[in-house]
Design a protein around this nucleic acid. Structure first.
Lengths: 333, 333
DNA sequence: GTGAAAGCGCTAACAA
DNA sequence: TTGTTAGCGCTTTCAC
């Protein structure tokens, strides 16, 4: 069953059916109505592949994330899809799950599908796949790479204001030794966040002790490992800031196991504000990075780039802000 | 850049390029090699829409889930995608996020894309969208609907063996009053699971007190609400079985807040074994339902149905088994 | 072993 | 306001 069949039954041409389907104003209302009725009656479903072939694009976007089981990303996906569903666009998702090698393969699959653009929230990307995208005029929007170009936009996370808030909060509570547990080192995202922490520490008049800067992996396990190392130190911090909430959950878990009450022995500040943050014990003080805002910005950026094939990229920013719950308290004396 | 361009450069016809791309054995190795080199050199990416148009199918599957932020489903997605990526198939995902109305719309979008089949892990489905799928010969594989037909398979969760294990475990620990917190009532999935619980209770020689059968919503909030109601009862249970781990987490949270140590005051058994189960406190005793097995079965079922347009559906089963951790212990006396 | 050519279903330019 | 028609890029007979 194709448009021609509908056309035949409705006694019009297939062009008219196409016009009706696409809401062209050129069709006489009565004709349109007649065609619509036939479409309805026949339960006709247009063939998206044909339209995609004709247009050279598929009205879908690719989305590449590092790890779908990290709630931050699944919550992001939800927002991203929701926004695009309203615009009648599909999402082709790929989760790397810590196999960096999948990046190439995912991008290729998306190019075969002729996606109208790719949102890349994942860690590093090598220049080769980027070149392939540029070459094929596929818009790319990255997160916190701080690099733009033709068809390439970036969304920076403004860690700084949030980190400043967090450090002021901790400082006001009397903390002077504050540690940071980052993400996988080497990722630009980790580096920026870490740098924002260091800057904020200095800003409140404290020294950034290198021993207090630990590495994690954005997962619970990384938080656990780093926290155990910290507990083994002779001079311990009294507060910890982590690169994301999963890391903070790992930290809390170790503290719980070793019988260190939070926030009496340590204050903990997370990053992201995943839904779980409000549900774990104690509810986590954290830097909120709105998935909704982030998803909105990604869509805006993608749409802007989709307008022209070599539109200049833009640098966008989304902010963070402190949400105070119960995992922070006065420094132990 | 299309196949004809490649053909021209390689001094062959586009048919030969197509053959090379699809690994046809009809091409002389030397020719194939030459073509491959040109493809490589030109960084040619075939157009999937054209192939899809030609074939009438898109080498992709649709996946519909109720809630992507429930770890059970995000873990499932990971497995499902991983299996299909190897087979070079894409996944078109839709998360309903508790808007049942999105089902129709999602199915329609998938039909427009001419998916080769749909995996439906979501709650209820009305007969209308199912008919549309059958009419268009789109294979459908559902979970725990226990209904099959031409082009329609089902994967039942064998709750029974797991529930029996759980009840035997609790019974051996001396529990006699055991409550159940289910999912949203009215869903076939909830009903089956609840029925399995009741059966298992009787099997270990206990009565299934209706007051001990509560309703939840598969989310943390449902577990919290039900647990608060249970705490308000005059005769309380000493153990709880929940319809999924998120519900159990809600239960644990309320018990924590009200100062009831687990498992000393209540034993709690979850369902699913999401990765978080091992990380919360206390680590959750739960009925493991392997996402890997489930995803494997879905793919197997979809592929079986894809072979012929009206292949008879099959009833599959995946099992559950008890994982004992620390949220269960001897009944308080 | 390879090529020519038809056609998958749709849209848009042009004609009427 | 509507119809005719030429492709979009690919696969697949059918010839050679």
């Amino acid at each position: 069953m194709d448009q021609r069949d509908i056309a035949r039954i409705a006694r019009v041409s297939s062009a008219t059916v196409s016009r009706v389907l696409n809401g062209s104003s050129l069709v006489k209302p009565a004709t349109a109505e007649r065609v619509r009725r036939v479409i309805e009656k026949q339960k006709f479903i247009p063939n998206g592949s044909a339209a995609a072939l004709r247009y050279g694009k598929s009205s879908s976007y690719g989305l590449i994330i590092p790890d779908i089981t990290n709630p931050f990303f699944s919550e992001f996906i939800r927002s991203f899809q929701e926004i695009l569903a309203v615009k009648n666009r599909d999402v082709l998702m790929a989760s790397l799950d810590h196999h960096a090698s999948r990046m190439q393969e995912s991008i290729r699959r998306m190019m075969v599908r002729r996606v109208d653009g790719i949102a890349l929230l994942a860690a590093e990307i090598e220049s080769e796949p980027i070149e392939a995208l540029v070459l094929n005029r596929v818009p790319l929007v990255t997160m916190d790479r701080r690099q733009t170009g033709p068809g390439l936009s970036d969304i920076a996370i403004n860690n700084v204001s949030g980190m400043n808030e967090a450090l002021e909060h901790l400082r006001a509570l009397g903390h002077r030794r504050i540690a940071y547990i980052g993400g996988d080192s080497g990722l630009t995202i980790s580096d920026h966040r870490r740098a924002a922490f260091i800057k904020a520490v200095k800003r409140v008049g404290l020294a950034a002790d290198p021993a207090f800067l630990r590495e994690g992996n954005y997962r619970i396990s990384g938080g656990e490992k780093a926290m155990r190392e910290i507990l083994a130190m002779k001079t311990r911090p009294t507060a910890l800031v982590t690169a994301n909430d999963m890391t903070a959950i790992g930290v809390l878990r170790v503290l719980h196991q070793t019988g260190c009450p939070v926030p009496q022995t340590f204050s903990v500040v997370g990053f992201d504000d995943i839904e779980l943050s409000d549900v774990i014990y104690p509810p986590l003080t954290t830097l909120r990075l709105s998935r909704q805002d982030l998803a909105d910005t990604f869509v805006t950026a993608l749409e802007a780039l989709s307008r022209g094939p070599r539109t200049a990229g833009k640098q966008y920013t989304v902010g963070t802000r402190l949400v105070i719950r119960e995992s922070t308290g006065p420094a132990p004396r």
